[in-house]
Nucleic acid binder design. Structure first.
Lengths: 119, 119
DNA sequence: CGGGATCCGCGTAGATACTG
DNA sequence: CAGTATCTACGCGGATCCCG
């Protein structure tokens, strides 16, 4: 298995408070971060589709989560000045790369969730 | 890239509120969950070592996070009735499996954190 | 040393209502 | 449709005290 020492070398890491790595980790593992990113992995989604896909998220948290990821350069927001308004969200290349790195974790959880919860 | 449809099939998923998958995802992506699991990837650690490794965690949150993972069957707690007391924490086989699934994500974040924070 | 129990304050999530 | 504004509630963290 890949050891932490190999992952991090000798630099400050996510284990160090205030390290940039910790900041990014907090964004990604924020309450709705993983689900929003995973939802966008399937392709571009509109605000309303995103809200329906990520079941249970409030509008406030969806807006906040998306704003964070747009600022991080992981998500693109495309607002069209039509009536009614239409706003599309999609992953940037960087965002797609991140979701690929997340997919083993998502797969593992999907496969083992029942065993963990039902013990 | 692996699509969500492939990951989840047609079952209820982490996207569905109340699904077991969502519960496990919440545990793992809880504020300190990833860091505690990653710390234990290196091997068995004592309470104090864990507290020092995961910089910034409070004793209360460390205890709560560990209790959750022990209940989930991801972490083993080994308390020895010596004076002074010694309590070791380590990953179960299931926990080790999970950390392996997490390692691409941790590696990606370590590699890209600076680029994201400094934009 | 390794916790558990409790109280308390603050920030952030959530629900609801309103707007362009 | 796609948000923002406002209010409330709870999770998280700090501090303290205690115990085996």
């Amino acid at each position: 298995m890949l050891s932490l020492r190999e992952i991090r070398g000798d630099e400050p890491t996510a284990f160090t408070d205030g390290c940039p790595t910790r900041v990014v980790l907090d964004h990604v593992t924020s309450k709705w971060g993983v689900l929003v990113l995973a939802a966008l992995a399937e392709g571009t989604l509109r605000w309303g589709e995103l809200r329906r896909t990520v079941d249970g998220i409030s509008e406030k948290m969806l807006a906040a989560t998306l704003r964070t990821f747009v600022a991080d350069g992981l998500v693109v927001r495309d607002a069209q000045a039509t009536i009614p308004p239409r706003v599309d969200y999609s992953l940037t290349p960087l965002g797609r790369d991140l979701v690929e790195a997340m997919s083993p974790l998502l797969g593992w959880i999907a496969a083992h969730a029942d065993a963990i919860v039902n013990d």
